[in-house]
Design a binder for these strands. Structure first.
Lengths: 181, 181
DNA sequence: GTCTATATACAGATAGAC
DNA sequence: GTCTATCTGTATATAGAC
């Protein structure tokens, strides 16, 4: 696993992109093969089944989340602010893995739902020491969930009603003040 | 439309339930007909296509949201508290319509995504007069989104990490204090 | 490793009997 | 209004050539 074949990664990237941009129903083996520039047979050499393909997306997610939790704990501006700001989904590899996994979860993949609940718990564990009580932790987690929700439901690359710039600064400041009350 | 045929309503209910409990992929015409206790041909007499079936779910949603917005504005405990508490999805007809529509949106139905964004805007319009600034409105809306998110992602009737009872009371109080800062 | 061709299953939708 | 039977398209997966 130290240096996976190039074609394999290309297929995985294409599958992720289809999930994110066109939804779970459009992310078929056929469409994935076409987008990755390989044949269906070629794809099936690397991923024996659709389920295997989906599991690899979740595997990628878990790896990236482990890095992210480390980054949250070391953030100079503080874990809460960093966590909230990083809840605005951009197009980092982690964000892409999250949205792709959310699509799989909605498509009926139970393991994807489990993985998403699990990483939410990891984030909560990272933030908990910085929240004075459980209501404060709930507030931070729910605002973060809300930011995700708008992107995940936005159906693709649509920009949804997500606060940005000065508005985001004000929101983060408001949450930080609220949890110190 | 004043008294729609019973079978029609039964089919719509069954379709909604399948979307909520088993996901968009499982909510096929075949499965819906079986769950409603009619044949596929019988179903297709009432709903000429799957798209027609989906549109009726959205129609139901719009009706229920109009009632809900009225209830928010008239709530004795105040619109913000009422809105937040009602963001915990139970099994009211409105909650079911929301989750079913969210599944359709994830399945690629663009109209469902549009409808959900539209009702979010209606809620924001109802809450805006009670929020001193846009950061406060963002906070309320995002906490509400977060509460929805956990239910919608929970994959079905799973209870997710949703605050309840005393914890919910504390959260609502925290948000109400925060937006008065 | 990558391809073409094909098997199997099931989705949505039509036709027409009752 | 509701049924059975059937058509068509498309998804996953297999077999085997190159």
């Amino acid at each position: 696993m130290s240096r996976p074949p190039l074609a394999r990664e290309k297929v995985l990237d294409a599958f992720e992109s289809l999930l994110i941009d066109d939804g779970e129903r459009a992310a078929t083996m056929d469409a994935t093969a076409r987008a990755a520039g390989v044949s269906k047979g070629g794809l099936l050499y690397h991923f024996a089944s659709k389920d295997a393909l989906e599991q690899c997306v979740l595997e990628r997610l878990r790896l990236l989340v482990a890095e992210d939790v480390a980054a949250i704990l070391e953030a100079p501006e503080g874990p809460v602010a960093y966590f909230l700001r990083s809840s605005i989904l951009e197009s980092t590899p982690l964000d892409r893995a999250i949205v792709a996994s959310a699509r799989l979860a909605q498509g009926g993949n139970a393991a994807a739902g489990d993985a998403l609940r699990d990483i939410r718990e990891q984030w909560a564990d990272a933030i908990r020491p910085y929240a004075p009580d459980s209501a404060a932790l709930d507030l931070v987690m729910l605002v973060s969930d809300g930011l995700y929700f708008n992107t995940v439901l936005a159906g693709g690359s649509l920009p949804g009603p997500t606060p940005q710039g000065a508005e985001l600064d004000a929101l983060v400041a408001l949450v930080e003040r609220a949890i110190r009350l």
